[in-house]
Nucleic acid binder design. Structure first.
Lengths: 333, 333
DNA sequence: TCTATTTCATGTAACGTTTCATATAAATTT
DNA sequence: AAATTTATATGAAACGTTACATGAAATAGA
């Protein structure tokens, strides 16, 4: 009779089915077992409502079936979307996700990484900004949006192509004079290629352009000063602006409103990331959309891939453009 | 000499320090040990960079040090905020969080709950809407925003007081004729008290009011029809609107704009939840703010409380009002 | 100085799995 | 029909902990 008030164990199943412990283990793991045995064991499992204890499995196998997600927070919509899709991709493979919100704190980032060496997680998917972060080459680590060094794959959207696409869109929509706006000093990360891509797009399409880069994030005033400087006779000299993130686009939209510039009539605005209001209602702005579900799937696939000898240093996934009200659309596209 | 390529175990520490296994265990768990032993063990721990294997601990103690969070997704900003703060509260107590995104699917909700009975998690914090959900009385479960039955505590903000506060604010700001708008058919949940609270507030302050409740979420057209019906000579008969969520307020704001009603000049709008753009920039609308960090802390505290005999059926946490641009403020408040 | 008592480190068993060497029964060969 | 091979179920050991019974050393009492 199974013990009171406790989940049934393999031993209980073995007793119930009248077979040996090892036989139950084989059935549970899909290894070859005589049919009559298999049937009896399966019946006992159903009767007792048995489920394997994956912590005991992990102890034996020296695996934890847990992957840590290192991410600043889950409140920023882009991080939230990544968290959601990575969680789904992991659960699909019977892995748990240990959520490690680092709040951009280098100390916490390093601490969580040291966990991996201690076999507390089987691997890490990390979106980090701390330039001094040390990840040893043999650590099972997948970096998002940043190359961490040899042997550590990086997954990102095609940031260069995204920048280029933004320039082309603005050109298609009739812009002549455009600007690129950026904040953040994280020069180590892939998203910096957005600038280069935009520049290339502008050159290809003959757009005249200007670049404005600030170290501080959310520095409303400085951008206001910059844009105010480019107003002649009440009219902005730019007819198109590409912001490095949707978050920045949100701020710039407010700046433009304050400066009495109409969007998209006077100036068209394109952001980057594909953030949606309340997670799903509509796009904050016209934007270059990152393929978040695909990025998530790729991170998990790479991390759990058996043959880790084949480690691509960088995987770029394609971006798309989405209309979000801050551009003048030619047609229904 | 410790084994190659493997995290050091207690055995390694014991060998290094020249003490018995049990002594190391005691040191690790802060149990009384002779000073000379403690020093040697601590030194060995530092030298080998040892960390306990909490899966082995859990196996022994029949605990997993893991709590499941059942939540529809992490993309909706309110869910994202809860996820973030619950994660922090759990990590603070050395517990892991298993994120279970249910996507509102009753099958998944029930499946994750059955996990708890199988000792795969030590407890569950759940934000669910499925009315048929079965949670047995002895299950360690804390429900958010919904009473699940006897023995299952519910944590929520003070929804009634929130509704009342919204009515009072609108009255303070000079409204005479107000409306309450709501979507969603989840009549089982605590947030329904927002309506009763608002009604009470209106009666107390002598506001005339109207209630509009739709089953479908996000039914832009129906609300547009409703509000259009209340426009006389181009002017809305309401001078104040209370929306059951910030999400709905976002939609209503669009409806009002379409109907050429100015906010807050013609009509003032108050939402509920305290959602901020991009997680932290500014409030979407003037709103009743839920104390999300406190809700998270309370859920975790209740779930992990030793003496679970003292199970309060319902814990209400206080709400506050925040200005978010959709109300006419008298002063700097 | 010798026994009685206390103190505290030791080492073994157990938690729920998996794996592997062993044993048993069936199938094949001669 | 006896001997050999093959197939496959069995059960013990091990994974890294904790808890408890054991025993050795140190202190106190006479």
């Amino acid at each position: 009779m199974p013990k009171e008030n406790t989940a049934p164990t393999m031993k209980d199943v073995a007793r119930e089915a009248g077979v040996a412990l090892g036989t139950v283990s084989k059935v549970v793991n899909g290894l070859p077992v005589g049919d009559s045995y298999r049937v009896r064991v399966e019946e006992a499992i159903r009767k007792l409502n048995y489920q394997v204890n994956s912590y005991a499995q992990g102890l034996k196998a020296n695996k934890t079936y847990t992957v840590a997600l290192l991410i600043p927070n889950t409140v920023d919509p882009f991080y939230a979307a990544l968290t959601y899709h990575i969680n789904i991709a992991l659960l699909k493979r019977k892995y748990r996700m240990l959520l490690c919100a680092t709040d951009f704190d280098p100390r916490q980032e390093q601490e969580y990484i040291s966990m991996a060496q201690h076999n507390k997680v089987d691997g890490i998917i990390g979106l980090t900004y701390n330039p001094g972060l040390v990840v040893e080459e043999n650590t099972p680590f997948i970096a998002i949006d940043r190359s961490m060094g040899p042997g550590i794959p990086c997954v990102a959207c095609d940031n260069f192509a995204g920048g280029q696409l933004a320039a082309e869109k603005l050109a298609d929509l009739g812009c002549k004079n455009v600007a690129f706006l950026r904040t953040g000093s994280a020069l180590v990360n892939e998203p910096n290629k957005r600038k280069a891509g935009f520049e290339t797009g502008c050159l290809t399409r003959g757009l005249s352009y200007e670049m404005k880069i600030l170290d501080d994030a959310d520095s409303f005033d400085e951008f206001e000063a910059f844009l105010a400087d480019h107003i002649i006779n009440g009219k902005l000299t730019f007819d198109g602006i590409f912001c490095v993130t949707d978050r920045l686009a949100y701020l710039i939209l407010k700046v433009l409103r304050k400066l009495h510039q109409r969007v998209p009539e006077d100036v068209q605005l394109i952001g980057f990331d594909g953030i949606q209001s309340f997670g799903d209602i509509d796009y904050h702005c016209s934007t270059i959309v990152q393929p978040v579900p695909e990025i998530a799937e790729m991170c998990v696939e790479l991390l759990l891939r058996e043959n880790m000898l084949v480690k691509p240093p960088l995987v770029c996934l394609p971006v798309t453009y989405a209309y979000g009200g801050t551009t003048r659309e030619k047609s229904e596209e």
